[in-house]
Design a protein around this nucleic acid. Structure first.
Lengths: 126, 126
DNA sequence: ACAATAGCTGAATGAATGTTCAATTATTCA
DNA sequence: TGAATAATTGAACATTCATTCAGCTATTGT
C-alpha cells in the first residue's frame, strides 16, 4: 500500500512520477461521468455569488417578485432579473406569472439543503 | 395578504413600487448576517469550478498527493497546486505532509454532503 | 386604443479568475 | 554537501462574468 511506483509516463502534462497508481486508478473508476461533474460545477458556481446567495436566502421563507428582491437587496430590477435568469437556468429557482408580476421561489428541497449545509460549514470552520 | 401597497420610496436603486412590503421585511429579518452570506458565496464559488469539483470528486474516496491529482486530471502540478490552495483557504480540503510529499483530503463531512446533494440535484432536474 | 408598469434582454465595460511559465522552497538520499 | 524531486509561488495573459444602460415586451386598467 502507498508504495512509490515511479512509473514514468510520457504524459507531458505532468513533470513527475505517478506516485500512487492504484489509488489514482481507483479514483478514476469511481469518478462520476465528466458531464455530471461539469453540471455540478455549473450549479455551484451559479449558487456561489453574493447577489445570488442573497436572492436564494430571501426566497427561503417567502415567494417574492422581482421588485421585492430588488428593493430588499438595494439593486436594480435589471440586475436582479439577470441573476434570476441564471438561477432559473440551473433550476435553483422557479417562477410563476400572475398578471404583470412574476413570482420567484426555490425550485426544490436540494436548494435549501445546500444553502443550510454551506452555512453550517462556514460557521463551524474557525 | 399580498396587497399591493404602492409605497413609493425615494430609493433610486429601484424604479418601482414595493409590492409586498411585509414579505420583504420578513425576509430581511430572517436573512443571515451579511458576512455569513459573503462567506457562503465564497465557499460555493470556490466549490463551483470544474477543475476543483474534479479534485474534490477524486478526494471523496482516497487521500491523494498533488502529483496523483495532476496525473488523474491531466493537468500540471502548478495548476493543481493553485486550485488546492483555494480549496484549502475555504476549508474544503486539508493537507498532511510526509517528507517531500503533501497529501490532500476532504476537510470534513460537509464537503461530501454538498457534493452529493449537488450531484443529486443536477441528475434529478430533467 | 393608450398610458402606465413589471419584467426582460443585448451590448458594453470594468473587475475577477484559471492556467501557464519561470523561479523558488523544502525535503530526501547518496 | 550537493543533486534530485515534490510542491509552492508570483506575474502575466486570456477569458469569464456581474452590473449598468437603454430599449423592449407583456399585461393591466381606463
Amino acid at each position: 500500500m502507498n508504495v512509490q511506483l515511479f512509473n514514468h509516463t510520457n504524459d507531458t502534462t505532468c513533470d513527475c512520477c505517478v506516485i500512487h497508481k492504484q489509488l489514482v486508478n481507483k479514483a478514476r473508476r469511481l469518478m462520476p461521468e465528466e458531464n455530471s461533474l461539469l453540471e455540478l460545477a455549473d450549479l455551484l458556481r451559479i449558487f456561489g455569488d453574493s447577489t445570488r446567495v442573497r436572492i436564494i436566502s430571501a426566497l427561503l421563507h417567502a415567494e417574492l417578485c422581482v421588485c421585492d428582491i430588488a428593493v430588499l437587496l438595494g439593486m436594480t430590477k435589471s440586475a436582479i432579473s439577470h441573476q434570476l435568469r441564471a438561477l432559473r437556468q440551473t433550476k435553483l429557482v422557479k417562477r410563476r406569472k400572475a398578471g404583470k408580476i412574476v413570482y420567484y421561489s426555490l425550485d426544490d428541497e436540494h436548494v435549501s439543503s445546500i444553502f443550510k449545509l454551506g452555512l453550517a460549514h462556514v460557521r463551524e470552520r474557525k
